[in-house]
Design a protein around this nucleic acid. Structure first.
Length: 286
DNA sequence: CCGTTAACCTGAGAGC
DNA sequence: TGCTCTCAGGTTAACG
């Protein structure tokens, strides 16, 4: 479920909670996630000190000593829960939250200091990947350049790349190999700010519209981070409180409601593009 | 090579 | 209550 802003909030929470700590033990209950956990997963992580946690597009990166890393992708339903050893303190500290400690779908437990970090994922679309060198890390993320917030995602990049693309701009924005970090919610939001119809062919995008895509991608994603991400189901931060950006959606989940653009009398439409729900105003998005 | 579709999974919520 | 149906913030193999 999380897109770049939500993953960023998870990263910030993890830094506060686990940076500098050692992983004492790892227990795996189900290794069949989106991809099967690599052999020796537990052994690789045991006794590793977590030097830092960073984020690239929708990935969390755990940094260990001797240039070892572990990537974590939350897929659609991956959540992390901090559980203190005394059971009564179990529920509050969760990066994603459920009203009580999830009983099902706890697939991995990381024993850290005096608590455990639990990876829960009902749909099992999330995955982990062990990385054994800086070079391997660089290579892994090469196809995901540029990230939406990188300087490389700029007007020149779009100008060069869009002219031979026949597919629609909305599908292109959520294509992680074109630009990484944008998902289904923020693609609709960015295109509304940019006044571009999501069905518009990429090669028909004008120079001025490209400028808007760059500008509003930055604007929307950064504002979403500032607001703590979007909580439309159960996304919570470390303190167990909601993000607030869902209150600022211009189009997402607003089918049949009035367009919020000033002086626009449009009504938000919902269409399916590439199997995903897409929201837009057919008056001000051309 | 490119673009599109279906598949991978489970659970929440709507409608009846 | 309970059944059936649709939908979900992601990724990618397979197809034409």
């Amino acid at each position: 479920m999380p897109e770049l802003p939500e993953v960023e909030i998870v990263k910030q929470s993890l830094i506060k909670k686990v940076r500098g700590h050692k992983i004492n033990e790892v227990r795996v209950f189900n290794k069949n996630l989106r991809f099967k956990l690599q052999n020796g997963f537990e052994k690789f992580l045991k006794n590793q000190k977590i030097l830092n946690i960073s984020r690239k597009s929708k990935y969390i990166i755990f940094h260990f000593q001797k240039e070892k890393f572990c990537l974590m992708h939350l897929g659609m339903s991956g959540t992390l829960h901090v559980i203190n050893k005394k059971k009564k303190l179990f529920t509050n500290l969760s990066f994603y939250h459920s009203k009580s400690l999830p009983k099902k779908h706890n697939h991995i437990e990381f024993y850290i200091s005096n608590f455990k970090l639990v990876y829960n994922d009902p749909r099992r679309f999330g995955f982990f990947r062990l990385i054994k060198s800086k070079k391997e890390l660089r290579n892994y993320f090469k196809p995901y350049e540029p990230e939406a917030l990188d300087k490389g995602f700029n007007i020149n990049y779009l100008n060069q790349k869009l002219k031979n693309k026949t597919k629609n701009i909305k599908n292109l924005l959520i294509d992680q190999y074109f630009v990484s970090g944008i998902g289904n919610i923020y693609a609709s939001e960015i295109l509304h700010y940019s006044k571009i119809n999501p069905n518009k062919k990429a090669l028909k995008i004008k120079f001025k519209e490209m400028k808007n895509i760059v500008k509003f991608t930055n604007f929307v994603l950064k504002k979403a981070i500032k607001k703590g991400g979007s909580s439309i189901r159960n996304f919570k931060n470390l303190k167990g409180t909601d993000g607030n950006f869902q209150k600022e959606f211009k189009v997402y989940n607003r089918e049949k409601q009035k367009c919020l653009r000033e002086k626009c009398n449009g009504v938000i439409k919902k269409v399916i593009i590439g199997n995903r729900s897409t929201f837009y105003c057919n008056i001000c998005q051309k």
